[in-house]
């Protein structure tokens, strides 16, 4: 693995002007993400973790500071299709089959029909949904739909995957399964993944780097480099190393947030 920096944020600020006065969504955020990292952003609601992800994706603009993706601005990165973005809900079009849903970004990007077909088959295999290409979204469970949405984000072969609580709406059993699958996927594709979550076990289980954030103003409290091995069976969550990291995340969350 090289040490190439993929995402670099320097003293990033983002203030939303609302009717109740300014809201500091991000304040003095500094972060470097290295190629091949799996970075989780964890924190309570309003800590700016989603906003940070949206800034990387050029969906929100910072009010101050600099951020580069692959060495260029988020806008240039978006236009060069440097990242795939997975939202909280799958956002599949009910009038398109699973295959056609995955083709959607490929059609928009003007990729040839024959290559579209190839890529759809490839990414459906990656998320283990080969037999569902001709099915419609309503014929799939919520977990399967979210896998389709991951497949869609992978279809145009961006090096970075930005994921905003993709499994937040799913039950724990499905979530465990998808976490395992996502790790496998990360190993086989060598993507850089930024993953927003508010589940501590999910963050610790998945990540090489855990960014703990806190609200009002949204800021980074702690960055934890995980020393868990690359191969992670679900049982790893009962080991001491895992529990230690989880403990540190919990302490970070507690330090940055008063619950009064």
């Amino acid at each position: 693995m090289t040490n190439e920096t993929v995402i670099s944020a320097k003293s990033l600020d983002l203030t939303f002007q609302t009717n109740d006065g300014p809201v500091h969504a991000l304040k003095d955020v500094n972060l470097n993400v290295t190629k091949g990292d799996f970075v989780s952003f964890i924190g309570p609601s309003g800590c700016g973790k989603t906003t940070f992800l949206r800034v990387m994706a050029d969906l929100d603009q910072p009010t101050d500071g600099t951020i580069t993706i692959n060495g260029v601005s988020p806008k240039a990165a978006r236009e060069s299709r440097a990242y795939g973005y997975v939202f909280q809900s799958a956002g599949l079009y009910p009038w398109r089959t699973i295959g056609k849903n995955i083709r959607l970004p490929l059609e928009i990007m003007g990729i040839s029909k024959s290559e579209q077909k190839e890529r759809v088959e490839k990414v459906l295999k990656l998320v283990e949904l080969e037999d569902f290409e001709k099915k419609f979204p309503w014929q799939l469970s919520g977990g399967m739909q979210q896998r389709v949405s991951i497949a869609r984000a992978l279809a145009f072969d961006a090096d970075i995957l930005l994921m905003d609580e993709p499994f937040g709406a799913l039950d724990e059993i499905v979530r465990d399964y998808l976490n395992e699958q996502l790790l496998k996927l990360w190993h086989s594709t060598k993507k850089t993944i930024c993953f927003v979550t508010h589940s501590i076990p999910e963050a610790v289980y998945l990540s090489t780097k855990i960014v703990v954030m806190s609200p009002r103003p949204g800021r980074i409290i702690d960055i934890i480099e995980s020393d868990l091995p690359d191969k992670r069976p679900l049982e790893i969550r009962d080991t001491k190393e895992f529990i230690d990291i989880a403990q540190r995340v919990r302490e970070g969350l507690r330090a940055g947030h008063s619950y009064e």
């Binding site: 978006r78 299709r81 939202f87 956002g91």
Partner: peptide, 24 residues
């Protein structure tokens, strides 16, 4: 908003958003 944002992440043009999303 999510559907529009999604289109934006793919750098879709206004015309593509119209044809693929708004009209259907």
């Amino acid at each position: 908003l999510l559907e529009i944002d999604q289109m934006k992440t793919w750098s879709a043009s206004q015309f593509q958003i119209l044809i693929k999303l708004r009209l259907p």
